[in-house]
Design a protein around this nucleic acid. Structure first.
Lengths: 236, 236
DNA sequence: CGCCTAAGTTACATATTTGTTACCACAAGA
DNA sequence: TCTTGTGGTAACAAATATGTAACTTAGGCG
């Protein structure tokens, strides 16, 4: 679920917003003044910034410009009691994605948050990716994502996973990997690098121990076991 | 300039909107009823749909759902006299990107149109490979290919080139790169990693020395630019 | 079981990548 | 011109990634 930062000095409103969003399933962090809000919005990871304009410390507009400057695509919604058209125009022109005038209803807040998040770049789908067990492997970014964490893959690891993913459900011999990933002539060289790289990959895939299976005497197979178990001994 | 479709039955409002947008530089097509509007919004190419809810013929909500179904990323703003929170929520939940209540000011309309267009997918590209000068940069395989050679990019180098490529033709400050590639708060930290990574990238791009330009005091820009073309000998 | 070989894994050596410091070159304003 | 700050890059240090050797565990077969 996305994380939302709320910067709002009025305690009642801040708590109201945070509770609403939490209830809707978001993770929320609230800040009561411009200084702590500015720091948090520049140094932490989150998906949406809800920003009051009138704040002690840094003003909302200052925070808005700084965040826009350093994170040009960060979704930002302004919440403000200033309801003049000129205020709204100024906020939107400064880069906000939406401008909600106080007082506002809970449902509208949620609906606008959703609308802005629909457009957020973080929601955009990754290009080439493979699903294995509970993981999604992003072959472009070289990352392996479980439900609640993202782990990096080293270049060699991504090469191997990519090769296995392309030939998914087929058993790949160590020699085939050596030849096509390491570009080493397997004859003669009796290295164990393949085994070790597989071992390291399995550690990163620890939640799905069966995703990367050993076929004794043959090699390794990536993919769901169901199909393969059925095909075990059709020939030979 | 982007093209906008306006579907609005009230002649005065429709003409007002169209004139405003034209004056601001957009191309505009206006439709006065739901049937012609539905046809146009499904069969023509455009960048933004401005939609009244109460229309003769097809209703605005019908058009909204149909367009969302067939063009899931098309930017849509609802214009409506129905100002109840429940109306706004319904419109936004149905997939609109913004909901403007009549009567509205010209400036706010323009500001909200701009805000929605900033997020439009046509404005950003998830391209998997980028051509720069004589090179093709493969962002999936992290390789940089010239006519006769392929060179590897380190993970950090690919992250930087990817960021620059997505924001091609725009000057990116060191701080923006630090924030978005290194995920470091640029305030305080006075590192030179960015410069060095750029320097290393330039070595790999040595055949096209102008591909990665410095903008003194601002940052770096990837890609061809009018300035540079002007400074070169015009086609010898 | 006892044997042999395949596969898993730990510990360590090597290589590569990444970031820091420092020094030099250059741009822009006085 | 000089001055100041910005940008380029070499040289080094630290962090990561990769591969080897050696030891442990497990499978297959008599």
């Amino acid at each position: 679920m996305p994380t939302v930062i709320t910067i709002e000095d009025d305690r009642a409103i801040r708590v109201g917003i945070c509770d609403t969003l939490k209830f809707a399933g978001y993770r929320v962090a609230g800040y009561a003044d411009g200084n702590s809000g500015m720091t948090a919005s520049l140094s932490t990871d989150y998906d949406l910034l809800l920003l009051d304009l009138v704040l002690p410390g840094k003003s909302g507009m200052e925070i808005l410009s700084k965040v826009r400057e350093l994170r040009p695509t960060c979704p930002i919604i302004i919440l403000s009691a200033k309801g003049e058209e000129s205020d709204r125009v100024r906020g939107l022109r400064a880069g906000a994605d939406d401008y909600i005038t106080k007082p506002f209803g809970v449902d509208e807040l949620l609906a606008r948050v959703e609308a802005v998040l629909r457009r957020s770049p973080s929601r955009r789908e990754p290009a080439a990716s493979v699903k294995i067990g509970g993981y999604e492997i992003d072959l472009c970014r070289n990352e392996i994502c479980s439900q609640d964490a993202v782990e990096g893959l080293t270049p060699r690891e991504s090469d191997v996973i990519r090769y296995l993913a392309i030939h998914r459900e087929r058993t790949i011999s160590r020699d085939e990997l050596l030849a096509n990933v390491w570009h080493i002539d397997p004859r003669g060289s009796n290295t164990r690098v393949v085994d070790i790289t597989i071992s390291r990959l399995r550690e990163k895939l620890s939640l799905s121990p069966d995703a990367l299976r050993t076929v004794h005497g043959k090699g390794y197979t990536l993919g769901d076991s169901a199909d393969v178990l059925l095909n075990e001994e059709p020939s030979s």
